[in-house]
């Protein structure tokens, strides 16, 4: 187990390193000059060059990359070109909002996706199963920005049940979390359904049924007990889906999280922030996957060797 863990960790570090290389390379291909954005419209060419020198942006890209890595190793992600504040602090100030949103969305995903998936697995290929699967496809197929805007229109504007957007109390988080949660729970219900079907095929379930145990007890106690861990582990894999949705949902709801931070930074080619946010998102995805792997390997030792 330990060896497996160490191996996966080692791999993760390499993946993250790769992410930084690709992001860094891409950012320097963007046809825009961050120095001119910093120097502003009244700057003379001399000012521009002197700022370029001081930021080290006149160095070859590999040199800049190595410097970035060296600073990163010390936990320093640099300072925002535009906001001047350290990237660590900027991300730290916005991460709670994003995590709150994701937490609430995961809760919704569990509340909708899990029961739907379990129920569908017991009604396999019957009309109710079909209906649930089609509905889960509706969730998957719905563009998040449309869901978000429609939720705002109906629940915030028409019925004034929730605020129109923004950050604050519980009321604020419900609509954006629903938007994220609905779309992701589509995947989730399908996944949990197939997981359950897998378990329901096992011999011990047949045995239990043969012994005349109540069908609901079979599903909810015997089967779910074995299916629950991989189902939970799937949340780890969903982090990638969330990383996508967060940019859109935060833009629609004016949610002050790291998605908004990244979006503004891209507009202004604020390279340190873009690097920082990409890295944080990648760490989230990698850790999520790692957790999922570990959880799965506990249940199924074969995973460790594949």
């Amino acid at each position: 187990m330990l060896r497996f863990l160490a191996g996966r960790l080692f791999q993760s570090v390499f993946i993250l390193l790769g992410v930084t290389i690709i992001t860094f390379g891409l950012l320097f291909l963007i046809p825009a000059d961050p120095v001119r954005m910093i120097a502003g419209r009244s700057a003379t060419p001399q000012t521009v060059e002197s700022i370029r020198r001081q930021l080290g942006l006149d160095q070859p890209i590999p040199v800049q990359y190595v410097r970035y890595l060296a600073n990163l190793a010390r936990g320093d992600m640099g300072r925002s070109y535009v906001q001047k504040a350290p990237v660590n602090e900027l991300i730290a100030s916005r991460l709670p909002a994003t995590l709150q949103l994701m937490g609430a969305a995961i809760l919704i995903q569990l509340m909708i996706g899990l029961p739907a998936g379990i129920f569908a697995s017991t009604r396999r290929n019957r009309p109710s199963d079909k209906a649930i699967m089609v509905f889960s496809f509706v969730g998957i197929s719905a563009p998040q920005f449309v869901v978000g805007l429609l939720l705002i229109y109906v629940f915030a504007f028409k019925f004034e049940l929730f605020p129109l957007g923004g950050y604050g109390g519980i009321g604020h988080v419900i609509l954006p979390a629903l938007t994220l949660g609905i779309t992701v729970s589509g995947w989730y219900s399908r996944m949990s359904r197939s997981s359950m079907i897998e378990v329901l095929r096992q011999d011990y379930i047949r045995t239990a049924r043969a012994k005349g145990v109540n069908e609901w007890r079979v599903v909810l106690v015997h089967a779910l007990r074995n299916a629950i861990l991989p189902i939970i582990a799937m949340i780890g894999i969903d982090i990638g889906l969330y990383a996508q949705g967060i940019v859109v949902v935060e833009a629609v709801f004016g949610w002050p999280g790291i998605g908004q931070l990244a979006w503004l930074a891209i507009q202004r080619v604020d390279i340190p922030i873009i690097m920082g946010v990409t890295l944080v998102a990648a760490v989230g995805i990698v850790v999520g996957n790692l957790c999922a792997d570990i959880a799965t390997s506990f249940i199924d030792p074969r995973v460790r060797h594949s």
Binding site: I38, A39, G40, R41, S42, A43, T44, Q46, T47, S50, I51, Q54, L55
Partner: peptide
């Protein structure tokens, strides 16, 4: 120049500007 001020260029007319920049 160390300040990286976007306003540097506004002060071009002050004697000694070139030497300092």
């Amino acid at each position: 120049p160390a300040t990286q001020s976007p306003g540097q260029g506004f002060f071009w007319q002050i004697a000694g500007f070139e030497e300092m920049t």
